[in-house]
Design a protein around this nucleic acid. Structure first.
Lengths: 320, 320
DNA sequence: CTGAAAGCGCTAACAA
DNA sequence: TTGTTAGCGCTTTCAG
């Protein structure tokens, strides 16, 4: 059995409450006693049991962060920023991955419940109803998902998507495709709405699709057959998968068709040709989500996005 | 306050222990009583408090996984496999990131302590002494790090690195470089030793370096000046950073110099030219680490690696 | 400033 | 099969 507060108390002839106080309210204990307790604790290798502490205080000092897919390069910067923000306020952040499965989402929130003081749900896929139930059980903030009465950090992907389409239009494209994301995704919905009526652009929607490289590759033929010269993809991964698929079909990017991703992930930045993409403020979102959670502030924040033009977009063929 | 076992007990006129049993040992309670308890619990929205439970049982049902850098594409497949393995045995896995900082490593283990039943430490950077202290406080398994008496999952990177160098030699290269990884890394040490004496190859070691894209870019000039025609990099990220840096310098890959990465990460797979690399059994490692942790088996496992030849390696210039 | 005592939510003997 | 009774390790009144 590990060494407990009682062992320390015994070791320096003092009562447990005094030991407890030396750790949770040091100023309330005599300086000399404090050093004695501290050194005894040190010597015995005493570590406060946070689970036990949380039982009385109701606080755990932990936060949870739930993402759909750790392997999606969109998330790591968000997670790292969230982690830094949590640390800065003396919290620990535990991360879990739902594998894009709404059921696991629920399960994980339940698992976190009582072991964390709050949870950040990133791009949750659950239905509104299920989500409502979840956020009722524990302080939560949502990232890229809107829900009545729940603190939210949103990225202005609508504007970014629109700018991306306008970029295409400006290049001379007339008929373009939107390769949409998964059905439950707020982001995908926003994008759809935002690009529905860009002046001068005829937009065909393809999807829903998995938010992965495979999702993009899978629709390459469909895109090639759609008679479009430009594409906005749900995210960088989908864009890259699409480019790979197009390549197999002998369609070159940006020679034959221009492709724009969304996220500005490291993967897109390193890809060749370097991916034109909509930069998402992921780090800001991670930081803000944690800050809002800790300060229990209720707010709806909209973070800006911007277009990063790189090498996968060009004027349509035939237009110099 | 949340609804407790006591509320449920009161609600259906039964004692707390009965409610407790309904959840932890359902077969020990009358079928009819059980349904009554269950429906009352459901209705009240009762959720067992796992922290409280762990206080008496000594078990939490959670595992911790600590990685150096979530943003390194090496880790996500490992994490996902670990997560799946944990789920399969009815555990939850919480992930944390140390930002390559040994001090945070220690802090995180302590934070996990008592909130998880064991932890998987992936490529820890701590000193042997610090690590020894850590693994003493909680059941642990190490991935890619060797420590006397501690359960370990290792990847045979030595063999992979050697094969990579032999591939270079076979292509006709004579003078090559190893762009090494960080100082505290077991993997980097293994690689260094493994490539020290490949027949027919003259190897210059450059490093230690950060295990990131920047780490690779930073030594591009040095590599270009080293008079080598082939390079083995510490990982895919370093390889890619190096290629980018070389490119800036007007050195083409694989035209002027061949580059091999290690990991076989998605990033390398998607890069152009497609990266020749040493595939690491990351998913296997994640799965095994969790299984070993749960079964409390003590073992040292060595997982195989293999070379994946793609497009960044070619014979040295002048050799057809 | 420190000790005594109650209790956080739950489980685990032990009885009944 | 169910109730009773102790705690798990810690914090937090309340006295002293």
């Amino acid at each position: 059995m590990a060494v407990t507060i009682r062992d320390v108390a015994r070791a320096c002839g003092v009562h447990v409450s005094t030991v407890s106080r030396t750790f949770s309210a040091p100023h309330m204990v005599n300086a000399e006693t404090r050093t004695r307790v501290l050194s005894a604790a040190e010597e015995l290798g005493y570590r406060p049991n946070r689970a036990a502490r949380s039982l009385t205080t109701g606080r755990t000092g932990n936060l949870g962060l739930i993402v759909a897919d750790l392997a999606n390069p969109f998330f790591p910067p968000l997670i790292k920023a969230a982690q830094a923000a949590a640390r800065a306020r003396d919290y620990h952040l535990f991360v879990a991955d739902t594998d894009e499965d709404p059921a696991k989402e629920e399960e994980l929130v339940l698992a976190f419940s009582k072991q964390v003081d709050g949870v950040v749900l990133c791009s949750p896929r659950a239905s509104n109803k299920a989500l409502e139930k979840l956020v009722g059980t524990i302080p939560s903030v949502l990232v890229n998902r809107r829900l009545r009465g729940v603190t939210t950090v949103l990225m202005d992907v609508a504007r970014g998507a629109r700018t991306a389409m306008e970029h295409l239009a400006g290049l001379g494209h007339r008929r373009v495709a939107l390769v949409a994301g998964p059905a439950g995704s707020w982001t995908s919905g926003e994008i759809r709405k935002a690009v529905a009526d860009v002046p001068g652009l005829d937009t065909v929607v393809i999807g829903p699709n998995a938010p992965t490289e495979e999702g993009g590759t899978a629709v390459a033929a469909q895109v090639a057959a759609a008679g479009v010269t430009g594409v906005l993809a749900y995210n960088d991964l989908v864009a890259i998968g699409l480019i790979e698929g197009l390549d197999e079909l002998g369609v070159s990017v940006p020679g034959d068709v221009s492709v724009i991703g969304i996220d500005d992930s490291i993967t897109g930045r390193l890809y060749r040709p370097k991916l034109t993409t909509v930069a998402m403020p992921t780090a800001d979102a991670g930081r803000m989500a944690v800050d809002l959670l800790i300060t229990s502030m209720s707010a709806a924040t909209l973070l800006e996005t911007h277009l990063v033009v790189r090498e996968t977009t060009a004027p349509p063929k035939g237009i110099p």
